Computed example of a mutant assay.
Amino acid sequence: MVSVRNAREDEVDTLAEIGFRAWEKAMISIGEMTDMRESAFSAFRNFTHSSWLTITIVEQGGSVAGWAAREKLDELISDFWIDPAFQGQGLGKLLLEEIEAQIVHQGFEVARVETHARNAEAVGFFEKHGYSINWLTVAYSPKIDRDVQSVGLSKRLVVEEPETYGPSF
């Protein structure tokens, strides 16, 4: 059985490990992780310990399979990680749908996400689910202490109804 729910404080170490494993898988294909592993794991631990209230998890059969966060509880999905052992099973789609529903419920019309520009798997996942690339940049990331090429993607979640006079045919 699959469920999506809020994270609990007693899960923060598990969430850090899942995030790190998913990050590591993504970075292997990018080829830039050799000297970043320690700082990346530390960043995941620090984030999950300090921000677990902003994290939503997806679990399958009682095991945490992935998580997403909205660090500032706004329209930006700051983290989105599915454990490599659970990827390709539709769990990311379910988690994304829940996060998007939360964004709409809180009054935002657009969801945004940022990822490494060369993370083709993540970019493809979000594009498959209706996101479009809006920008490309290189910026310093204090979490991993280096410059990172990033893309920003967004998706309109609330469709604006056209204003018309009289009945529409």
Rank of each mutant, 00 (worst) to 15 (best):
S3P: 07
R5K: 13
N6F: 11
E11A: 06
V12S: 08
E17H: 03
G19E: 05
G19H: 06
R21A: 02
K25I: 03
M27W: 02
I28T: 08
S29L: 12
I30L: 01
G31K: 03
R37H: 03
S42N: 09
R45C: 15
F47Q: 00
T48P: 02
T48I: 02
T48M: 08
L53T: 10
T56K: 14
K72E: 10
L76G: 01
I77A: 04
F80R: 00
A85H: 14
F86P: 05
Q87V: 13
G88P: 03
G90R: 10
G90W: 10
L94F: 08
E98S: 14
A101T: 12
Q102N: 09
Q102S: 13
Q102R: 10
I103F: 03
Q106C: 01
G107H: 06
E109Y: 14
E109H: 15
R112Y: 06
V113W: 07
T115C: 09
A117R: 08
R118Q: 11
A122L: 03
F125T: 07
E127N: 09
E127Y: 07
H129D: 06
W135F: 09
L136E: 15
V138S: 07
A139C: 14
I144V: 12
D145T: 05
D147Q: 13
S150T: 09
V151C: 03
G152E: 12
L153H: 06
K155F: 03
V158P: 10
V159N: 07
V159S: 11
E160H: 13
E161Y: 09
P167Y: 11
F169D: 08
